[in-house]
């Protein structure tokens, strides 16, 4: 979509999230309450179909459009599988299928297909709880399995979102076709989505913390006027800016390079960077907000806890860092600088 259309979409979605994705919804999910109406409205807006072509019933946007939506969603702690369902829909469409409505989850792991049936176990699947179907990649096939044909053991994330372990035992596929992407690529796309969600959350943390520091009065003046606080917030801003900048660069590279492998290195670097800075961002914001930010009452934890969880999803800084480091080491010192300037794995 063109810039103007995207801005309109983001504007509409932003207003919707501001109005509808309040504290009750986010805290409700943590208590195990699925916000069915909220999800329905998200579907009515077409957000999970952002990157699905129009002839498949989608919005016809690009991967970059979807990533912009996910950054926005991250900035509202949207506690439903928008990223997962949207990526699943995009992958189903790319494999020639037509995505169905309802929340979906990505089950990326060591799975095998035999006789058209899926077998294997995937731990810590985000939003395994409410997912009506699971999208997996096994033996080069993109496979969609209905929830009824999978065994789910819930293990909520530390942000209170319904993650869980999913087991397939000769599960029949509701859709199966040659996948347009490898399972490694699907993990990359998941990592990109999380990097963008983390960028959104980080931005919200900065805004929340800055605003609070201007309101909170101690020793007779707003704490924002203390140099110690100003310097903490400036450092926070630099970590947030780096998180946003790396995620946005990766989203651009992924989009420009195509679905199969675009921006492979940039995504790895951005997810590494976002995950690496998550702790510093959380620590600085909590320190700036004192006890208030440590309460369940305040919204800060909606974002800091998500950063802590999201840094692990679809590969942590150790996972992606190791891939980058292994490539750099294998290629040797002279290949390092050219690879950096070209945003690609050293070779």
């Amino acid at each position: 979509m063109d810039r103007e259309t995207r801005d309109m979409l983001l504007d509409t979605a932003g207003r919707f999230f501001t109005e509808r994705c309040g504290k009750e919804i986010v805290n409700g999910v943590e208590k195990g309450i699925w916000p069915a109406d909220f999800w329905k409205e998200i579907e009515e807006m077409g957000l999970p179909l952002t990157a699905v072509p129009e002839d498949k019933g989608g919005v016809g946007g690009t991967l970059a459009d979807l990533m912009a939506v996910l950054r926005l969603a991250g900035g509202h702690a949207v506690p439903v599988p928008l990223a997962e369902t949207a990526l699943a829909a995009m992958l189903v469409a790319a494999a020639g299928g037509t995505p169905k409505p309802g929340p979906a989850a990505l089950a990326l792991g060591p799975l095998a297909m035999a006789g058209g049936r899926l077998t294997g176990k995937v731990e810590r699947v985000p939003f395994a709880g409410p997912a009506e179907r699971f999208v997996a990649i096994a033996d080069g096939m993109l496979v969609v399995v209905a929830r009824a044909n999978a065994r789910v053991t819930l293990a909520p994330s530390h942000a209170g979102e319904p993650y869980g372990t999913v087991v397939f035992e000769n599960a029949p596929a509701e859709f199966a076709a040659r996948s347009a992407v490898t399972v490694e690529r699907a993990r990359e796309l998941g990592a990109l989505a999380r990097a963008m969600q983390m960028a959104g959350a980080a931005d919200k943390i900065l805004a929340t913390t800055v605003e609070y520091s201007k309101q909170r009065v101690q020793f007779g003046r707003p704490i924002s006027t203390f140099q110690a606080i100003q310097h903490m917030l400036a450092e926070l801003a630099s970590c947030v800016a780096a998180t946003i900048a790396s995620a946005e660069a990766a989203a651009r590279d992924a989009d420009e390079g195509g679905l199969a492998d675009g921006g492979s290195f940039s995504i790895a670097a951005a997810k590494t960077q976002a995950s690496d800075f998550a702790q510093r961002i959380a620590a600085l914001s909590h320190q700036s907000m004192g006890a208030m930010g440590f309460t369940h009452e305040h919204i800060l934890h909606h974002y800091t806890r998500r950063l802590w969880v999201w840094r692990r999803d679809f590969g942590s800084e150790s996972f992606w860092g190791e891939k980058i480091g292994a490539a750099v080491a294998k290629a040797g010192p002279p290949a390092l600088w050219p690879a950096l300037t070209e945003s690609r794995y050293a070779s």
Binding site: S246, T272, Q273, E317, W320, G321, E322, I324, G325, V328
Partner: peptide, 10 residues
């Protein structure tokens, strides 16, 4: 490798 990669990512 992971530590090296994190430096490169930074």
């Amino acid at each position: 490798g992971a530590i090296l990669g994190r430096l490169v990512a930074r």
